[in-house]
């Protein structure tokens, strides 16, 4: 069991509630905009504290309201690929990629910079600044940065949303390889049925 999640959180006038379990593979969290999908990812990552429920990922309890467990985001080992890439603008691509790698314990580093660069085709980009990257390039760097942080699981929040249609195929192929070659469990948010159909091995509907 990769994800065992039961969450409830009040945000303003909205009530976000979701319970699901999912096996390895790519689990699509599917629903219309505004259903609270991103908030669910933020709660799994530890960036937003649920009011109640639990978050168990890969057998480890990361949050449990009843047992008062709340692991800090920096110790959850969950890679988060944001919709907008969210690269650090004051660091070059190489430093962005290594940001989490440098902070990870030696034993947790299951992939190295050279491997990630080859896997994602980042060789030409290492000395560039984030602002000079195209959307697709930035998204590949963001995926590499998450892998290098020693993550055991990936969260992806509409990683294709800010890309041109022509660039989407490139990132879809990358995500499929992370899913199939690296066998990393992924929790993937989208509102696009075609994307859900193409990438998902399991589907969780929301909203």
């Amino acid at each position: 069991m990769s994800f065992d999640i039961a969450l409830r959180r009040r945000l303003g006038a909205r009530d976000i509630a979701l319970t699901f379990k999912a096996d390895d593979g790519l689990t699509v969290l599917f629903g219309p905009s505004g259903a609270g999908k991103t908030s669910v990812l933020n709660m799994v990552a530890g960036l937003l504290t649920p009011d109640a429920g639990h978050v168990r990922v890969g057998g480890a309890t990361l949050f449990d309201a009843a047992a008062r467990v709340d692991v800090a985001p920096e110790r959850r080992r969950i890679g988060y690929v944001f919709q907008d890439g969210r690269l650090f603008p004051h660091l070059r691509v190489r430093a962005n990629l290594l940001y989490g790698w440098r902070l990870a314990a030696e034993a947790d580093r299951w992939i190295g910079l050279d491997e990630v660069v080859a896997f994602l085709g980042l060789g030409e980009l290492l000395d560039r600044w984030p602002r000079s990257l195209s959307g697709g390039e930035a998204q590949r760097v963001a995926i590499g940065r998450a892998l290098l942080s020693g993550a055991r699981t990936l969260l992806m929040d509409e990683p294709l949303a800010s890309l041109d249609a022509s660039r989407r195929g490139e990132i879809i192929a990358v995500i499929e390889r992370v899913r199939d070659d690296l066998k990393l469990p992924i929790l993937y948010v989208t509102h696009d049925p075609a994307e859900a159909e193409r990438l998902g091995t399991q589907l969780v509907a929301m909203g």
Partner: peptide, 8 residues
């Protein structure tokens, strides 16, 4: 937030 998820 991104930095926190990366281990900082």
């Amino acid at each position: 937030g991104a930095a926190r998820t990366l281990g900082a």
